[in-house]
């Protein structure tokens, strides 16, 4: 989604005075973010953790949907798969790293297997086929009771805060999830900075032209799908760490659609957008519930429409415009 930015000449460069100001601003923000869990309630910390969890899931989805232009309705299946794999691992005494490896490996394998035939389809056909992922996943989770605990789900104690940190469990989880999420974001960012990113951009704009220009369209689409799946798997592991519980609800189409909506609300093709979208998805329903429980869903829908109407570039796009505006002020 292209942000409609006011056309101006070259972006205003910061004066020599203002540039160190920017780094100071970043540092302040970082310190504030790192400090929040120390003062926030366990509930707030859980919210923060969930934002990071879904942020990773949305980031992965963005690679497939936002960058490669392939609408997918299956991301929840990968998140759920990762969460169940992690639950299995933790439940059988594996360590966190091994659990993560299992989650990622399973998600990756399923993604590749589904992607190879699926990416031959275009547009909405592809999207509807990805529906099959949650459609199969939920009944499977319900039926394989030995593995998954059936419709009741599985509760595990995934991690507790180590003694030497002096942190409470909820605080520890924010930091742990935050670190892992940061690593994933960094990895995906680097991945997209190179050939894959350019190939996907070409594919999104015009597949036929990309192919004519020598881009291996199928292979790159499979790759994008796999990255989405891998991120989903990681998000699932993170989810289990955060919530300590998994049930078939996480696999549902509902969540897959919500992730897609959150992606657009936050802003496609933007790392910040993934986080903003996750924040919207986690926080706004709580707010609307507080305003009026009976009308919560309706108000949420209206909020969505408002964001889509007024911020076509998503929240990230709006933020970027705001920053550009303030930067112009600073230059003056």
């Amino acid at each position: 989604m292209t942000t409609t930015e006011r056309a101006s000449a070259a972006p205003a460069t910061l004066s020599a005075r203002a540039r160190p100001l920017r780094w100071i601003a970043y540092a302040v923000v970082a310190v504030v973010l790192l400090a929040i869990p120390q003062f926030a309630s366990p509930y707030t910390n859980l919210q923060l953790t969930l934002i990071l969890v879904y942020g990773v899931a949305i980031l992965g989805l963005d690679v497939l949907v936002g960058r490669a232009g392939q609408v997918s309705l299956g991301q929840s299946a990968f998140v759920g798969l990762g969460a169940y794999a992690a639950a299995y691992a933790f439940g059988h005494g594996w360590g966190p790293v091994a659990a993560l490896a299992l989650a990622v490996a399973l998600a990756g394998v399923v993604a590749v297997l589904v992607a190879i035939p699926a990416v031959r389809l275009r547009g909405f056909a592809f999207g509807i086929i990805t529906l099959a992922l949650p459609a199969f996943a939920v009944p499977l989770a319900n039926r394989l009771v030995d593995l998954t605990g059936g419709s009741q789900g599985v509760a595990v104690v995934a991690t507790t805060a180590p003694e030497w940190t002096g942190q409470a469990d909820d605080q520890w989880r924010v930091y742990l999830v935050g670190v892992v999420a940061a690593v994933v974001f960094w990895l995906v960012h680097n991945l997209l900075d190179g050939r894959l990113g350019r190939a996907l951009a070409a594919i999104r704009v015009n597949e036929a032209m990309a192919a004519a220009n020598g881009v291996a369209v199928h292979r790159n689409k499979v790759l994008a799908f796999t990255v989405a799946g891998l991120c989903g798997g990681v998000a699932g592991w993170l989810y289990l760490i955060a919530v300590q519980f998994v049930s078939p609800a996480i696999l549902q189409l509902n969540l897959a659609v919500s992730l897609l909506v959150a992606l657009v609300v936050g802003g496609t093709r933007s790392l910040l957008g993934a986080l903003l979208g996750a924040a919207f998805f986690v926080l706004v329903p709580n707010v609307t519930d507080n305003i009026s429980p009976g009308r919560s869903y309706l108000i949420f829908g209206i909020c969505l429409l408002v964001v889509l109407f007024f911020f076509p570039g998503g929240l990230a796009g709006a933020l970027r415009r705001l920053l550009t505006w303030t930067r112009h002020r600073l230059v003056r």
């Binding site: 659609v257 897609l260 909506v261 009308r295 919560s296 869903y297 309706l298 108000i299 949420f300 829908g301 209206i302 969505l304 429409l305 889509l308």
Partner: peptide, 10 residues
């Protein structure tokens, strides 16, 4: 989808 949510809420 937003319209869907609105109508459901309605």
């Amino acid at each position: 989808v937003a319209v869907l949510i609105c109508f459901n809420g309605l």
